[in-house]
Write a protein that binds this DNA or RNA. Structure first.
Lengths: 206, 206
DNA sequence: CCATAATTGTGTCACATAGACACCATAGGA
DNA sequence: TCCTATGGTGTCTATGTGACACAATTATGG
């Protein structure tokens, strides 16, 4: 019978300074002591996989209330020097504002740009790349983009999110036309003062 | 530490008689005795997940040499009355011709139309539906469609595959234009006698 | 041998979608 | 009040997609 161990790892993504970042913790224990790694850990016996992902995220990073989706399950041999470990990977999206207070109680968690990762423990680099690819693909046929923004946002902010995820700059007029045409956004009557000309705030619609 | 059991289940799909079918086995043991279920079983200690899926498929159905891709990992509590079981589900695609000899040594495996499933064991119905949805989505931005056909095929046969997966009929001229325009198919110099006017055979290109 | 039936195989038009592209409006700060 | 940074807007072209009908070919059966 199977004596495998099951863990969950979470690729938590957000936009900081117009770039896509991932939250990494610093490992204290062996193996890969002092290496950066994804938050995660063993699934408890009476705990659903999603619940484990949420719990680990909260315990190790203090972050809560995120959009969470299963990514892929990594089960190759020798992923973990301690033995046979099967990892169900998740990715999570959160607006950066929401992490500012939360992140404080997790001293060893820090954000890194996804395109400038440090050396990671285990096969975590592969997992981060897989998550990045997934969200890049889902950006234009789902609404995941909105999960990286607060409830109200300007269209320029939404464009920044898309550009950060895709890693390329987009034409402003074409972008706005496409978003408006999809009907997934609706204008509010509020305006954000930006230091220059204020911008209209929108919200995700339905 | 986690005492979870890890299994793999495989949703093997093929086209029979212009309809998408899934291969089910009949359970002999409890729980769900005599119910239909997906082929699958426990992952061995020194065995990668993909390898386990391939092995179970061969052992329980005699089918080999299929296109295989991980689908999703199901880990809710109480999925299995025997205890806590996490199942890594795969889906596999195979041309029906290829299963004709193979299927013989697995007496209790049989094909069912995906839209007329019998009552299934565990949460296997959900898994089949999930697989169906996945392949439906991937049909037009990947080449999975070809995995349901032998190396050489007519464009009408390819259209039948698409229609079976999508569950709707397609316009012949539009379909052919789209396929040809994608450049993913190239004509051979062979023709299939169809009983009526012979059809040109194509092969998947690159 | 001829008539019939089944299947292959082909083109146009209308509409929607997407990329390229430039300028004025507005508000804050110097 | 001037400057500057950002917000906000429309057209043209190319490409992709859905709707739509008929002639060519071959096997079969009378």
């Amino acid at each position: 019978m199977s004596k495998l161990l099951v863990t969950v790892d979470v690729v938590l993504l957000t936009i900081i300074d117009r770039r896509l970042h991932v939250l990494l913790i610093q490992r204290l224990a062996k193996p890969f002591e002092n290496r950066h790694a994804l938050p995660g850990g063993f699934v408890q016996n009476e705990e659903a996989l999603d619940a484990a992902a949420i719990r680990e995220l909260r315990e190790e990073t203090g972050v809560d209330q995120v959009y969470l989706e299963q990514l892929y399950t990594f089960g190759d041999l020798n992923r973990d020097p301690r033995g046979r470990v099967v990892t169900v990977a998740y990715y999570a999206l959160v607006p950066h504002e929401q992490t500012l207070q939360a992140g404080t109680d997790a001293s060893d968690a820090a954000w890194f740009p996804v395109d400038q990762l440090p050396v990671l423990a285990f096969d975590h680099r592969k997992i981060v790349e897989y998550a990045h690819q997934r969200i890049r693909n889902k950006l234009d046929y789902t609404n995941v983009g909105f999960e990286l923004l607060p409830g109200k946002f300007t269209l320029s902010e939404l464009q920044v999110v898309h550009e950060a995820v895709l890693g390329e700059s987009l034409d402003k007029r074409n972008f706005r036309r496409k978003i408006i045409l999809k009907g997934i956004v609706k204008p509010t009557k509020e305006w954000r003062p930006t230091g220059r000309k204020p911008a209209q705030l929108y919200r995700f619609s339905e």
